[in-house]
Amino acid sequence: MNNKDKLLTIINEVLEGTQREKMSKIKDEYNLRLDIGFDSFDLAELTVRIEEVFDIDIFEDGIVETIEQILIKINEK
């Protein structure tokens, strides 16, 4: 499973936690708030779940808004 697929799995875990519909795919340009519908609590949970898998805190040094920005942080590590 590549990092993008792992990220999709994590995003779906967050969506499932609040009984929302899962996504079948994500695109690099997707905005976490506008396209996926995450609020600040969802983003907090996303951060925690990403850290558990990739050992990186994506919000530690600034705001992350898109899928591409998350993938860059994960791949840079």
Binding site: A44, T47, V48, E52
Partner: peptide
């Protein structure tokens, strides 16, 4: 602690 609680729901 809150991060742990969120992770574990």
């Amino acid at each position: 602690a809150i991060r742990n609680m969120i992770f574990n729901r």
